[in-house]
Amino acid sequence: MQEILDTFFNPAVAVQVLPMLLSGLWMTVKLAALIIPLGLLGGLALALAHTQTRSRKVRIAINLYVDFFRSFPQLVLVIFVSFATPFIGIELSPVVALAISFMLSTSAYYCEILRAGITAIPAGQTEAARSTGMSATQTLRHVVLPQAFRNVLPDLLGNSIEIFKGTSLASVLGMSELLYSAQSAQSVLFNPTPLVLAAAIYLALLWPAVRFISALESSRRAQGG
């Protein structure tokens, strides 16, 4: 038992690597703060284009885009963007490569969620707003989007958590975020405590969010909504 504790939960190692992990965590948070808003904005733009256009071609193009990028593992996109672009003479920094590859796929997911939310708002809401003289844009901004966002909040949060977790893929590009820091510490100190600690940090950060979504969903089930 003591041996297991010393191996996986070694306090001395933990204290030693904590500063390193925390700076890794800071990098993780910064990445998430870059990637999540980018994907959300991209997804919102796509969802608005899809729901507001009269052109069938635009809708089909957006559907193709969404399905195409939903078909790739995130890691494949990350690797492809960062390792294939140098062959045509484009050198992207890891952050930019990561941001581009995440933007491509997360905007697809956010688009699906927001589109579902927007189309679920009854036509009467738009008619009521338009009947008072509000423009199409004002109606979207004040009547449709607030309701749509509220209705799909659990899905939006769930997707954002997935993206936050996805920042761990940055370790593959050698960016010293939380997982990468833990892995380097583990190989230097030859002890897995940093990995366990990193997992615990992810857990401490995201468990409340996961709980919150579950509670939100079950309270909505109870309301029959």
């Binding site: 009854p122 009467g124 809401q125 008619e127 009521a128 707003a129 009947s131 009547v143 309701q147």
Partner: peptide
């Protein structure tokens, strides 16, 4: 305009 289904926000 006043609607049959009210259409309040």
């Amino acid at each position: 305009m006043v609607f049959q289904q009210f259409n309040l926000y």
